[in-house]
Amino acid sequence: MKSQLRCLKWAGLAAASLLLTLGATSAQAAIGTIVGSVHDFSTTGPNATYKGTSTQVCIYCHAPHNTGSTLLWNRATNGATYSLYSSTVSSTMNATTGQPGAVSKLCLSCHDGTVAIDSFGGATGSKMVTGAPLLGTDLSNDHPIGFPYNAALVTADPGLRAVSTAATIGTGNVGTIESKMLFGASGAATVECASCHDVHNSTSGTAVQAKLLKVTTVGSALCTTCHIK
């Protein structure tokens, strides 16, 4: 009897351990990953249009050694100059836009059509972004980027929320507009491509995965995170 009870006890512990492991695995799966996303260009990835030549996923943008640059960047340098957004109605645009910041140029190194997807690791490729993902170098008809979003701008434009306003990215990733959506030093942090998009797809549980958005567009939630409408 004691032996049977002992076996039942260990079986119960094993089952509990298995449930915890499965729960943790499910939670990790819900978070999302670049593997299997639209930015997975590996030969085994789902991106048939832009499938690359390497079985590695990260290598198309990053390399662990000998890159000599921030973020271990492994792609060709993007030296493009961009046409910027401007508004003919002065009341709708109080920010002063500049050229995209460094973090946006990483995105644009594919999306502006100046660098091929398979130009990485010192190689010159030929597979260019086409169709809807191709923004080109004319950004005048896209949401402005490269401008500081700070207290001074909010004062000038009461239609914007304070940088201290709560912002929830994906599932339960709560911070502020400044901490979760802006890039650079406090008070001078700027709006960039990654203010809205999650390049590594880590928030796909509640975002619109196809466009790697940080916040869902349902009810215009992405827009109203920053805009008072």
Rank of each mutant, 00 (worst) to 15 (best):
I117K: 04
H143T: 14
V103E: 06
A29H: 02
S86Y: 03
A132N: 15
R75E: 09
L139H: 04
T88L: 09
A24W: 08
L108R: 00
P133T: 01
N78G: 07
I117L: 12
T70I: 10
P144E: 10
S83N: 06
T70A: 14
H65S: 13
T124M: 01
A102F: 05
A123R: 06
L84G: 02
G52A: 12
I59S: 14
A24Y: 07
N78Y: 08
M128K: 12
S140L: 02
G136A: 07
Q56K: 13
S140Y: 02
Q56Y: 01
S69V: 15
P148R: 04
S87T: 14
S37C: 03
C107L: 07
V129I: 15
T137K: 11
I31T: 12
M93V: 01
S83A: 12
G136D: 05
G121L: 05
A29K: 05
P148K: 11
N66D: 10
A48W: 02
S83E: 06
H65R: 11
C61L: 00
S140R: 04
G131L: 11
S83R: 04
K105T: 14
D138A: 07
T53Q: 13
L20T: 12
L108A: 01
C58S: 12
G32C: 15
V35D: 03
T67G: 00
S87W: 09
L22Q: 12
H62N: 13
T77V: 15
L72S: 12
G101Q: 04
A30W: 01
